[in-house]
Amino acid sequence: MNALRTWILCGLLASGCATAPAPREESPAPSTAALDAEAARAMAATGAKGLAIAVIDDGRVVATRAYGARNAKGEPLQTDTVMYGASITKTLFAYVVGQLADEKRIDLDASIARYLDKPLPDYPDEDRYSTWSNLAGDERWRAITPRILLTHSSGFANFGFLEPDGRLRIHFAPGSRYAYSGDGLILMQFVLERGLGLDVGAEMQKRVFDRFGMRNTSMVWRPDFARNLADGWKAEGGVEPHDERSRVRAAGSMDTTLDDLSRFAAALVRGEGLSPQAFAEMTRPQLAITTPSQFPTLQDELPPEQRRKDLAAGLGVVVFDGPQGRGFFKTGHNDSTGNVLVCLPRGRRCVLILSNDVRAEAAFPQLVRFVLGEAGVPWDWEYGSDMTFWDGR
């Protein structure tokens, strides 16, 4: 039995599996001293060099804490240290699309063809986007809508360049099933920029970063970030320098800080900036998830009787049902980054974890449970059943 199943079945009890703990519903957020102690235990157990945690309760940021180092020099990681946002960028981008839908500037259920002045495959290939020309001869692209792109059901691989021949293609009828795709978000960006004439970087700045006082957040690298910047540690312990991203990429180019991103998380769980209808759309089950894990992105679906009933795609988030009701979450990951945001709308509670050491991911289930109580986050689906988690003992 792997560590994840042990964690689920035993409830992280040092005494064994005899009694599962009662759900910690609407309980107070842990004290900073308790959070500090648990973070120290997590870092010692996983070997993670850097970790930052924010706690949101009743839609307010009640704690932001940072631990360890931001680089190989041992300079301290702080709550205002610039870190890589990775795929949590997708959630902020989906929030902006929700605002545009509120303003009737885009219809979530209209074909993307409505917004383009020529067929998608006729656009020349550009390094900034994907290779839409590879879709020539496949008219299924016309069935793609913004909702389909934001629920990761376009039919694309994660990225076209990861295909065996490097060519983007549609693998299944758009909208019919979930398969995580960064290129799907890049296509949504393309529709906004080429179809509506928007600058996605400027829209993110105005609608999110400026609105919530996120002064150290950007979709592209800024030279002033260098004064307090996090490098990263990979699984084998090697250091990876921070990547200075020069292009706006809706799939994951954002640099941010714990202080900044926690402000957005608190606003999101309050529904601020979205109509009640738009917030409900973003955080409701839109499309059942039918695969045993999120990665690899293109894998066989489970038989109907084996599929989870508590797991679905929202818009830019994954939605789950657990002991405390409905929740939503989003992770971000690369070779040296591990991030997660988990929110429970009932009580407007969230925990945000940013780490510049990918080894910290092994502690995420325990740290989230320590802050929120048992929420039912589908960790085995997110990371795969072979992932070994620290169980808190």
Rank of each mutant, 00 (worst) to 15 (best):
I106N: 05
A101R: 07
I148K: 03
F156N: 06
F225A: 08
A86V: 05
V97P: 05
G314P: 11
T145Y: 10
I56C: 07
G85L: 13
V248S: 01
D117Q: 11
L185S: 08
I144H: 13
M1H: 15
S111C: 13
E374M: 05
V55K: 14
V55M: 08
R349I: 06
G252F: 10
L108Q: 08
M282W: 12
R393K: 14
V358P: 01
R140V: 09
V317G: 02
I170K: 00
F320H: 10
L352K: 11
F225W: 11
L192W: 04
R65D: 10
M282A: 01
S336A: 15
S133I: 00
R177F: 03
W390Q: 03
R60L: 06
G316E: 10
L168W: 03
P365R: 04
L258Q: 12
T257R: 14
G384C: 12
L149P: 12
T388V: 14
A22R: 08
P223W: 08
T331E: 05
S262T: 10
G376F: 05
A113E: 13
P146Q: 01
A288G: 05
G175P: 04
T46D: 08
R41M: 10
S385G: 13
R263V: 04
W381G: 03
P164I: 00
P76V: 13
R211A: 15
T79D: 10
D138G: 08
G155L: 06
R263Y: 00
D127S: 12
P146K: 00
E305F: 06
A266F: 12
A312C: 07
N334K: 10
R5V: 10
G195H: 09
R369L: 08
F225K: 07
R142V: 03
A29F: 01
E305M: 02
F172L: 09
T19G: 09
E361H: 05
L51Y: 07
Y383K: 11
V239W: 13
A313P: 13
T89P: 00
E361T: 09
A360V: 03
L168G: 10
V239T: 15
Y383S: 07
L352T: 01
G271P: 01
T290P: 04
R349M: 00
G332A: 07
L4M: 14
N2Y: 02
A362N: 04
A54F: 07
F93C: 02
N158G: 02
A362Y: 07
G273L: 04
S293Y: 06
G184Y: 02
R307G: 07
L150D: 12
F389H: 09
S385M: 11
T81H: 06
E126R: 06
P378V: 00
E193W: 06
A44D: 15
R249N: 13
D127F: 08
P28H: 02
M214I: 14
T131S: 14
D109F: 02
V82G: 01
G392N: 01
A18H: 07
V317A: 00
L298I: 12
V340N: 11
R307K: 03
Y67Q: 07
A235L: 14
E374K: 14
A226M: 09
S153A: 15
P21D: 01
E25A: 15
E361P: 02
R270D: 04
A33H: 01
F264L: 09
E240N: 10
T46M: 04
